[in-house]
């Protein structure tokens, strides 16, 4: 076995389904006999997690340039807020994880998903302004128009915002940011770094 670094293309045989489980970039044929590749890339064999009932090694195809990436529930995204309304904010998803995405996806952050505590006291306009860059987590695929996002965790929220004077602000607490030029304080749901 070992880790082959064999280049495969979609439709090529990776192994028998009795010996291997299909991981990312692979699938099992309808008759359940063979595992085939579904992407172009390098064939890798990964050991199964020790507590898994299925102890077959997992065969996957990786290494292709990161295309075909779409927002998945549970993944972290970076988005730019486009509209702030009474009960929700719209944002353009520009990065999936740390990688930028070629074309934006649309996301919305609903009032109840902005923070984890005191949800009934949340004020939309004290959390986000249009143009803010936020780090959020994908809650679900949402509806036809947008993915549902949430910033209800300490490390999620605004990571960059401009003051009314058009200058990047400095965070002074988890709810306040200050303009370095005018000294004016604005309210945001600020993301926590490190810790």
């Amino acid at each position: 076995m070992g880790n082959d670094t064999e280049l495969v293309t979609p439709g090529e045989k990776l192994g028998r389904a009795s010996e291997f489980k299909a991981g990312r970039g692979a699938y099992v044929s309808p008759d359940n006999l063979t595992v085939y590749a579904s992407l172009t890339g390098l064939r890798h064999i990964v050991s199964p997690p020790p507590d898994s009932p299925d102890q077959r090694p997992i065969v996957e195809v990786t290494g292709h340039k990161a295309h075909g990436a779409i927002p998945e529930p549970g993944s972290i995204v970076i988005a730019r807020v486009t509209k702030v309304m009474a009960r929700m904010a719209s944002a353009d998803i520009m990065c999936l994880g740390t990688k930028s995405v070629r074309e934006n996806f649309t996301g919305i952050i609903r009032l109840q998903d902005i923070r984890a505590t005191e949800i009934d006291k949340v004020d939309m306009h004290k959390s986000f302004h249009p143009g803010d860059i936020v780090r959020a987590i994908v809650l679900s695929l949402g509806d036809a128009r947008a993915y549902f996002l949430s910033t209800a965790k300490n490390e999620l929220g605004v990571i960059s915002a401009q003051s009314a004077a058009g200058v990047p602000m400095v965070a002074i607490s988890w709810t306040e940011m200050q303009c370095p030029i005018t000294g004016q304080i604005e309210h945001r749901k600020v993301a926590k770094v490190g810790g």
Binding site: I78, V167, A171, V190
Partner: peptide, 16 residues
């Protein structure tokens, strides 16, 4: 705290 000159932004890929 995230600030304008680094902090959270320094965690970003060059790409992002």
């Amino acid at each position: 705290l995230p600030d304008s000159s680094g902090g959270l932004l320094s965690e970003l890929d060059v790409d992002a």
